[in-house]
Design a protein around this nucleic acid. Structure first.
Lengths: 332, 332
DNA sequence: TTGTAGGCGTTATCAT
DNA sequence: ATGATAACGCCTACAA
């Protein structure tokens, strides 16, 4: 059932139906308008956006490329994006890349074929080469720092890393290690750089083996912690690059009979709702994930509206809770 | 740049280009084929799926309606769906309904306008009326039990509820309460029904005030637990309807100086990766969320391929960990 | 083996 | 105020 059928039934032309449906500013006699509306209802007519898009060259769809939505970090970002997109009448097409270059390429390609109006990329792992065929066709907004120059919404992860490290340094910790995420992630690298910088500022070097790569999961954090704590010179403080990793670390430390924070302090990143509820509650650097998505979507919409792109850097803040404490002062 | 431009540059007709691009079984001279391929590359031609879809009446897109992707439960489901969809060359359009009827209606409508090939609904909150205009246009698969008859993929939540309750009964618990989710969710109602049934079987009634509604979050679980434990007759065991809720409960119990499992036992639902890592680790009924999404997508693809729809019921299993123990036998 | 032409469902332009 | 007509970019009979 097409617009012609409706036109037929209402005894008008397709053009008129179109005008009624789109609340066009073109004048339509009220009589006719209601006749059309009745016909629409009677026939259960649902306009075909494909046909419309073909003509208008707008799909009202945006693509989202992230490593993995089952990671709460990206799930929250996605929620922020979808909220503003839907409010603007736009649909979100989701793609999970798992940080795999070939997946990324394929997804980017199909998103272009689908003629999304714009897209948002996260994870910091899309290359300039992947993006070249995309960038001059549709606006692209990045979440997080990307190797490619792109309008972006991000937090200053270097500063955040420094904040985490300084907190521990202030508590007297000198042996600090990182439970990082995938080392291909710019976010991970920036946080590690921040930690390293804060340590260097007080004359401490962050040894390579004190930055343990893992994935952003609790099991990953668990394994990384156990591996790390095997070393003869155990760190007295850990910085986990996500809440999930921190929760895994917490369990590993418990299994190793290391009390948190009495023997080992732990700082987490992200600060999802869980951080405040686990025991001990996690001292964490809050990253405003929902807002990250929200602002990214807003930025993209602005670009689509022809407005200038102003990259955004959102603030992070350290929330001190139970998982950090003074370096074993009493004993040593 | 359209297919005509490519045709032009390659010195052939659009039809030939189309045949090359779609690997049509229609014969094309190898020479010509490579000429076309070169032209495609030279021009950076990206086919327009909208135009294609308009003609073929297939968009290779599927819609997904869930309450909230930032809930790990749905995030995992989404991941499962997206994995099989992308493998089948299909895109997933995500919609967050927040269980709000009007949002659902709007989304269903726009998904129809976009001519998705089919859709998957989760959350058990879509009504028959909402679905009527949809169902006879595109195949719909449900995740979880729905008030509407629909091919579905689900777990037996009644049985799962029974399992959880029986575990506690076997440990000697007689005062059992539920930290439920939104009572509009069929999943929640089924689990509660299962618990009630198991209790009834041993002559215990599940009082209304022992089923506390909340949302599926840690703060929600925290608040619900505190409210519940104010009662003079405290339950000795709690059943939380998600891991998040359970983690909130764990914190509330700690704040109330109630030891888990010594004074209060706790069973969780879902069993996300976190469950095994928090302390005490959670005895939980595992719900295979990823598989739920996977199978739902497979079911939808089967329907789209014209194959018959066979609803699926996935098994759940109780994983006993640290959060449950015998009812205060020694003391009472 | 290749090309031509018609149409998928809309909207925009130009008449009326 | 309404209608006819021509695209939008592609696929697919059918013709050559």
């Amino acid at each position: 059932v097409t617009i012609r059928d409706v036109a037929c039934r209402a005894g008008v032309s397709p053009a008129t139906v179109s005008r009624v449906l789109n609340n066009s500013d073109h004048p339509v006699r009220p009589q006719v308008r209601t006749r059309v509306e009745q016909a629409v209802r009677a026939l259960g007519y649902v306009p075909n956006r494909l046909a419309r898009s073909l003509l208008t060259r707008e799909t009202a769809a945006i693509g989202l490329l992230v490593p993995d939505v089952s990671n709460p970090y990206y799930a929250m970002i996605l929620r922020g994006i979808e909220d503003v997109a839907s409010q603007a009448g736009r649909a979100v097409v989701l793609c999970n890349t798992d940080r795999q270059p070939d997946k990324q390429r394929v997804y980017l390609r199909t998103l272009l074929e689908r003629r999304v109006d714009g897209l948002i990329v996260g994870g910091g792992t899309v290359t300039a080469e992947d993006l070249r065929p995309v960038q001059d066709r549709v606006p692209v907004v990045a979440i997080g720092r990307h190797p490619v120059p792109l309008p972006s919404v991000r937090v200053d992860n270097v500063a955040a890393g420094e904040t985490a490290a300084r907190h521990l340094l202030a508590l007297g910790h000198r042996h600090i290690a990182c439970l990082a995420g995938p080392l291909t992630s710019t976010t991970v690298r920036d946080r590690a750089a921040g930690v390293a910088r804060a340590l260097r500022a007080v004359g401490i070097a962050l040894a390579c083996r004190h930055v343990v790569a893992t994935d952003f999961t609790a099991p990953g954090g668990y394994g990384a912690t156990r591996r790390l704590m095997r070393h003869e010179t155990r760190p007295t403080a850990l910085i986990a690059f996500s809440d999930q990793v921190a929760i895994g670390a917490l369990r590993a430390l418990r299994d190793l009979n290391l009390a948190v924070p009495q023997q080992v302090s732990l700082v987490a990143f992200d600060d999802t709702p869980l951080a405040a509820f686990v025991s001990p509650s996690l001292t964490a650097v809050r990253v405003p994930m929902y807002t990250l998505g929200l602002r990214a979507a807003e930025l993209l919409l602005a670009l689509l509206a022809g407005q200038p792109a102003a990259s955004v850097v959102l603030p992070t803040r350290l929330h001190v809770r139970e998982s950090t404490g003074p370096a074993t002062g009493p004993k040593e």
